[in-house]
Design a protein around this nucleic acid. Structure first.
Lengths: 190, 190
DNA sequence: CACGCTGTAGGTCAATCGTCCTAAATGGGG
DNA sequence: CCCCATTTAGGACGATTGACCTACAGCGTG
């Protein structure tokens, strides 16, 4: 309900993405929002609570996006294509900061941070959603493996696009993934 | 020359991999090596110097491994297959800590750390080496694109293997990458 | 008006970090 | 045996961090 709380979560979300979780301090977030650290402490007692809120927001955002495609009546195959094209949609941010899901998970995994489970839940969201779409396509046996495959390819492309901010590479890999999806689709139909 | 220096670099290499660069302190490394922080400071004046030394060591290690395959007389195609199989060779560490190259780069990129260029050089080492192997296979036109493709796939698989420490997933994806390599090879021969 | 709740501000605390300094130990060459 | 460069030890610093506490401003309600 508090607008201030939402502004804190949004600012933290962005800063965690751009600078990383550990490298972002209370003061950094408070500075961006334009409030005092004390006020910050009123809304969030510990840094882990902010992390939880940020992960919750990220899950909600992605969930809404994915469900939006399904609700819009897109075919399972078109849904998966839309997922692949996220890389193009966010190409600037990805080339600058990598994948918001993958980089957060990697950092938390190294820190042995309890919030790592939440970051894995973000992966799960995509994994399960993709799995359902492949099932809808008729790929009931290997739906999860296909989902993991596409997820892995996306992660890899995002990581390398971050290392080599080359737009052509990103576009080329997206095309290859879409071609792979086509092959899967025609192969399933027959 | 100094054996102590080498022990410091090795310990830092391992800790940077397992906990990350920022989360590893002087005291942590000194504690593992069993020396005082003062002694540490004698060998490395700043933390950035240790990072540079670690990256240098990682490059040297990987370079020796890659060159070893070439010197052993393996065919270009077998060399690339050996690269792909790194994922299996180090599967336990990768599932526990991710890819030593990718995770380090991601962290330094987010920190805007000058050492990020060195981490990119690590990617370059693999990229150029793979590019040469594809060229040796006769793929002179798209050698670099193929190198980037394999590099991206490896990165993605490592990231997801870290998120889902499932050995089967890792093995399945490696097989798919080897099959992809086969397709490239036969396609080139004709 | 007085009360109490929500929200905000700013100071304080202990801990930890990277950095730096000084002093002692070590050990080979004159 | 002593000298001197190399190596090691350990303390001290200034800065920053997450966490915590107290004070008070705004404001609707009784």
């Amino acid at each position: 309900m508090s607008a201030t709380r939402d502004r804190i979560v949004s600012a933290a979300d962005q800063l965690f993405y751009e600078r990383g979780f550990e490298a972002t301090s209370f003061a950094d977030v408070a500075g961006v929002v334009g409030i005092s650290r004390g006020n910050f402490y009123y809304h969030f007692k510990t840094k882990d609570q902010i992390l939880d809120a940020v992960i919750e927001k990220r899950i909600a955002d992605r969930d809404a996006m994915l469900d939006g495609w399904v609700q819009a009546g897109q075919s399972p195959r078109a849904c998966i294509a839309s997922f692949i094209r996220i890389l193009l949609m966010n190409n600037k941010k990805i080339r600058a900061y990598g994948c918001p899901v993958g980089t957060l998970f990697s950092e938390l995994a190294k820190l042995n941070h309890p919030g790592g489970d939440g970051a894995r839940a973000l992966f799960d969201l995509f994994r399960v959603w993709l799995c359902r779409r492949f099932e809808d396509m008729g790929r009931t046996e290997d739906a999860d493996a296909l989902a993991m495959h596409i997820l892995a390819r996306s992660q890899g492309v995002a990581t390398l696009a971050n290392a080599y901010p080359d737009e052509q590479f990103l576009e080329s890999e997206v095309e290859q993934m879409l071609a792979w999806l086509d092959a899967i689709a025609t192969q399933t139909q027959s």
